[in-house]
Simulated scan of single mutants.
Amino acid sequence: MSRTPTPTATVGDDHWAVLGLSPGADAAELKRGFRAQARRWHPDLNGNDPVAEERFKRVNEAYAVLSDPRRRQAWESGLDPGSLRGERADPFATGFPEFDDYLDALFGRQARPDDRRSPEPDPAYDPPESSRRSESAQRPPAAQFRQGPGVEVTHAPPPPPPVQAASDLETLVELSPEQALDGTRLELELPGGLAVELWTPPLAGDGWRLRLAGVAPGGADHFLQLRVRRPDGLRIDGLRVLYDLELSPAEAALGCKVVVPTLEGRVQLTVPPCSSSGRLLRLRGLGLSQGERRGDQLVELRIVLPEQLNDSEVALYRRLEELSGDG
């Protein structure tokens, strides 16, 4: 299963979109949007999300550009705002600070011993309406949360739960040879209740995997593994028909005649002497047909040993080993 590349910051990033803002938002909206996105993507709050670190860096870069008039003007003019950042070191070169410590350093707030018990009010933060309604239903009147004359503490909404690491899912889909040949319409209900409708590609084969990108929980992919087999062991791959033929070591070494199934009935096949596992024998014209095109049937030889050997068989194999060594 292939992964979508992790997004990284580039000169062409839309910094407004990264912060969830419309172009031209004022300073208060800029700060509010930054706080919301920084909390959402801070690595400490998204320990299981493999892209949180890069998303958080993009949020930091977007705020750094839009809050600096010179860098913002350069970016809006299509220039690289990174050339104006000076010699400032990478703030994340040695890891990510705690979320509250990071905001304190960024906004120039002074830490106080009782910060944990008395959070500092942020006049630029305005919680969503749904958050205000839920908080007002659970807390005493706001007057009990006042901190000093005329100052009211506004509590930020709780952080989102950690995003679980995405894992791809797979579903087995059985098709008839005719459905695989022409393509067929599928209606499937995936785990989680998601209903999908799709057409399989024509000339599909047994073992093919179709990728449904981003439909699994956590944004993972869901794969459909196609199974195109008949009860007699024939497998379909486009116009070709595949069949695995098991032989004993003696049959493979000496050669033999065997009967194998085909789409048109059973036929006799001659196995040449000294045939090894993996050898392919072709039955021309016994595959599927589409218009004037007709495929072949390929028979792959597989040498199979019995689970146990009796004393006579062991003696014969030892003698065979001796003869092979003498040569």
Score class of each variant (00 low, 15 high):
residue 120 E to F: 12
residue 210 L to K: 04
residue 149 P to I: 08
residue 236 I to S: 10
residue 146 R to P: 01
residue 185 R to N: 13
residue 183 G to M: 05
residue 225 Q to M: 12
residue 191 P to S: 11
residue 105 A to F: 01
residue 214 G to A: 10
residue 180 A to N: 05
residue 79 L to C: 06
residue 223 F to A: 07
residue 169 L to R: 13
residue 235 R to S: 12
residue 235 R to D: 05
residue 93 A to W: 09
residue 71 R to N: 04
residue 66 L to Q: 03
residue 101 D to C: 09
residue 123 P to A: 05
residue 193 G to D: 00
residue 132 R to A: 01
residue 225 Q to Y: 04
residue 234 L to A: 05
residue 174 E to W: 04
residue 9 A to V: 07
residue 319 R to V: 08
residue 294 R to D: 01
residue 237 D to E: 11
residue 182 D to C: 03
residue 183 G to S: 03
residue 70 R to Y: 11
residue 234 L to W: 03
residue 228 V to P: 00
residue 35 R to L: 15
residue 3 R to S: 14
residue 85 R to Q: 13
residue 78 G to A: 01
residue 86 G to K: 10
residue 75 W to Y: 14
residue 290 Q to V: 07
residue 118 S to C: 13
residue 281 L to P: 02
residue 297 Q to F: 01
residue 73 Q to F: 15
residue 236 I to V: 14
residue 207 G to L: 07
residue 308 Q to F: 15
residue 103 L to F: 04
residue 153 V to N: 06
residue 211 R to Y: 02
residue 96 F to C: 02
residue 166 A to E: 02
residue 311 D to I: 02
residue 287 G to T: 05
residue 90 D to P: 02
residue 115 D to C: 09
residue 325 G to F: 03
residue 30 L to C: 07
residue 58 R to E: 06
residue 279 R to L: 15
residue 94 T to S: 13
residue 237 D to F: 00
residue 261 P to C: 00
residue 291 G to I: 06
residue 320 L to G: 13
residue 2 S to Y: 10
residue 307 E to H: 09
residue 250 A to V: 13
residue 55 R to P: 14
residue 128 P to F: 08
residue 255 G to K: 04
